[in-house]
Design a binder for these strands. Structure first.
Lengths: 288, 288
DNA sequence: CTGTCACCATACCTGCCGGGTATCACAGGG
DNA sequence: CCCTGTGATACCCGGCAGGTATGGTGACAG
């Protein structure tokens, strides 16, 4: 099998993804730690090899063609797969952890009770592997699994997507609004999403998405602590799963939301994983 | 972000996968169209970069270490992802099929009626894309989807695995035994798996798996036509889904199996696909 | 209209590294 | 003991990735 023209080198993918994300050759080159001309040339060669134009170099800037959008998406996935391959291989070869160690990705402060029970129950299993808990930010579990930093993760639909993973459902829970205890709404026995979506003095906080904050007038937050403090200060409110009550402050009040979609916690792992430790952990989890 | 040591080049993955599959540097080099010494060196560099030993070079041969097995598996997946990226990008950029064309992978002769209905129903949709039907062998749909040769496929559990794809269930059916019409068993109104698993004069046919036939005394077959003929000749029997009756010959008899697991046909596509044509096709399929 | 700026493309050079050939080291088998 | 098969080593060479300098061009100010 002669390697046809359709062999993308990882280097090319890295370069293209950088340019496609920055939409600016200069900045992309800087991010890649190289000069701009070789980068331009590499992208041109890539376009010629694929026989497809990936970028529109217009006046004042660069934009993605349709094919470019496809390659950005598919290329990211392919890159993640290669770094996952490297990471998992290195882990498998590390002398200290031959095979009996699992990295579990969990959103910090998410489903704390469930996690506690899971770890306890699994530790009691005969031949249990060591579980390293890798705490991460808002929706980062997907990335952890995809690039091999984690072997298994607890994910929460509808926030996380389970596409591309194997998973088992563990728990479903309602959502509550966390409000400043002193706020009038906090006295209500229940609320609807409409009640909390446009409260003038409690604008919804904004989380960074891929490094940039969406527009809006709510406060910008980066972690749960900041959010908790802003709620305590009466500046914002949050809609969170029921189990998030575990990190409530004294100045917070939780009011059930009647019409919020339920949050379902899953245990998820890369499709086709076949390690015994992982299978044991999943079995333990589903039996909780 | 300086590209760390964990950057595997596609070339390295190709090389390693070839060696890991051949377990022989010379043959692997030949398959790769290169000489053996550079290949040896490349693998050594790879091992040094990863800080992990991948192969055991013993007297008379090469074998995979644990880490090597991991890299073989993960590396294959990563390679498939890159060639899928190339293929899909090129298809997206091809001038004649901007976006309104889908390649549907189907096992030849599998679920023929369902496929017919699906194609008819979808063609009647407004704005329907052109559907190219890509027929494939026994369990090859997974590979088609993974490496980008197909956009969507009809898969049959428990033969295919849906892990790593998004999918919707379309149909469940029982299984029947296809027997030579003249065979005594063909006269029975129903059979169990035990009845057909060890018939002395009708040994089960063997299908090639990754190019090699499993051991056994049944005849070796490569496609459904061969199988059909062997059954007609009274040399073997087959356990197949109910819908396979559509390719029965005059000399065949079909007898329902009472305890065979049902075969479920799904429509499956790469996780996260977002094309409108695909979404329409899936919706049409689930409404059949 | 024109100078300037921002930005990508082109031209050209250089050093590295991937790949080739020749050969070695070593284990088994007769 | 030699012969064979197999992977590793030594060494050379050419291509290509990456650098610097510079060109081309649209946007914008005045």
């Amino acid at each position: 099998m002669v390697t046809g023209v359709d062999t993308l080198e990882t280097r090319e993918l890295r370069y293209f993804v950088a340019v496609a994300e920055e939409l600016h050759f200069g900045r992309a080159a800087e991010r890649l730690g190289m000069a701009q001309p070789p980068l331009s040339r590499a992208i041109q060669q890539l376009e010629r090899r694929l026989g497809v134009s990936l970028l529109d170099r217009n006046r004042r800037g660069v934009s993605l063609t349709g094919a470019g959008q496809v390659l950005l998406y598919e290329g990211r996935a392919a890159l993640e797969a290669t770094v996952a391959a490297a990471r998992r291989t290195r882990r498998a070869g590390a002398a200290d952890s031959p095979r009996d160690r699992l990295v579990l990705g969990v959103k910090a402060a998410g489903a704390h009770e469930l996690l506690q029970k899971l770890l306890d129950a699994y530790a009691a299993e005969p031949g249990a592997a060591e579980i390293e808990v890798l705490l991460c930010g808002f929706c980062e579990q997907e990335g952890l699994l995809r690039d091999g930093r984690a072997d298994v993760a607890l994910m929460h639909t509808p926030f996380n997507s389970l596409a591309g993973f194997d998973s088992e459902e563990l728990m479903a829970e309602g959502q509550v609004a966390i409000l400043p205890a002193a706020h009038p709404l906090a006295a209500r026995p229940a609320l609807s999403l409409a009640d909390v979506s446009d409260v003038p003095d409690l604008p919804l906080a904004r989380w960074p998405n891929r490094g940039v904050y969406p527009p809006g007038n709510g406060p910008e937050v980066r972690d749960q602590t900041q959010l908790a403090q802003l709620i305590a200060l009466g500046r914002t409110l949050a809609v969170v799963p029921d189990s998030a009550r575990s990190w409530m402050w004294a100045d917070h009040a939780a009011v059930p939301l009647t019409d919020a979609p339920p949050v379902v916690t899953h245990i998820a792992w890369p499709a086709h994983s076949r390690s015994r430790a992982l299978a044991d952990l999943v079995r333990t989890a589903t039996r909780l």
